[in-house]
């Protein structure tokens, strides 16, 4: 009993599905200033801190004792910005969801698609892709900038496969090439770490539906949880420690140079990445379940 000739027939094959929602979510992400400000902070903090910290550490090399020289980690210095970026991506991941709850526009969004899971998937894919691309570019650029700074201070590239031990007695600052065992993996996993954190905050967003709640939970997991574990008796704390998200992140960017240091304390890099992926899956799945179940 259609009386109206509507311009966009609802009988058209297909439906308002994921592909179209991806376009919509991309429009949303790129049309607010907070996205661009956050991304600029990630890039500037990443590359800027890499240059700064590498410069400072290079200056200290000559005065370092053997023990301290064993701690010298050219890859990690180049990824110092990651510490700041993890909070930036957390805020961004949460806001993508909670800003819609704060304004009520989540209801407008959900009223455009038949399935709620489409909205969650589209939002998650878009923000994770944006963060992945930006953090990988930043991580690799930071790596090369950091090594260039060390080289400029007279650093010498370590032969691939060797450890810093070979250079502790030398006056040359160790520099790590991208082909050095584990270097490319460490830098790559830096972007993966930040992308997974984005999705954890994103999941908190759907679970808590509140900006302050989602962001403080995220910060709690990264900063407060390690403090709590630290004050526990070591019989309890030791087996738990390596499962903390922050330590998983550390495990992911460790390179050969520091391996001995952390043996037993940290997981193997890929194992750590897989564990964090598991956490992410649980948080996002809980968010998806609640989204499907609760009134919007």
């Amino acid at each position: 009993m259609t009386l109206v000739e509507t311009r966009f027939p609802s009988t058209e094959p297909g439906r308002a599905g994921l592909r179209l929602s991806l376009l919509s979510e991309w429009t949303k992400v790129r049309s607010v200033r907070s996205t661009w400000i956050s991304l600029i902070v990630i890039v500037v903090a990443g590359i800027g801190l890499s240059a700064l910290v590498s410069n400072i550490e290079a200056g200290r090399w000559a005065s370092l004792g053997v023990a301290d020289r064993l701690q010298f980690d050219p890859v990690r210095f180049s990824q110092t910005g990651e510490f700041i970026s993890q909070f930036v991506v957390g805020v961004l991941g949460a806001l993508v969801v909670t800003s819609e709850y704060a304004t009520g526009s989540i209801r407008t969004t959900l009223a455009t698609v038949p399935r709620r899971s489409t909205v969650l998937a589209a939002k998650g894919i878009v923000i994770a892709t944006v963060i992945f691309v930006v953090t990988e570019i930043t991580a690799f650029t930071s790596f090369f900038v950091g090594q260039a700074v060390l080289t400029a201070h007279g650093g010498r590239t370590l032969p691939s496969g060797s450890t810093i031990v070979t250079q502790v007695t030398s006056s040359a600052i160790p520099v790590i090439g991208i082909t050095h065992a584990g270097a490319a993996r460490a830098v790559f996993l830096c972007g993966i770490y930040l992308t997974l954190l984005t999705l954890i905050a994103f999941g908190f967003g759907f679970i808590l539906r509140h900006t302050a709640g989602a962001i403080s939970s995220f910060v709690g997991v990264l900063l407060v949880l390690p403090l709590i574990v630290q004050v526990l008796p070591s019989s309890i704390a030791d087996p738990i420690e390596k499962f903390l998200p922050s330590n998983l992140g550390l495990a992911m960017i460790v390179v050969t140079s520091r391996k001995t240091d952390f043996a037993g304390v940290l997981m193997a890099p890929w194992m750590a990445a897989a564990t964090l992926l598991g956490y992410t899956a649980v948080v996002v799945a809980l968010g998806a379940w609640l989204l499907a179940r609760r009134d919007a």
């Binding site: 966009f8 919509s24 949303k28």
Partner: peptide, 8 residues
């Protein structure tokens, strides 16, 4: 635009 895109 973001709304229109969802329904082509």
């Amino acid at each position: 635009v973001s709304l229109a895109q969802t329904n082509a």
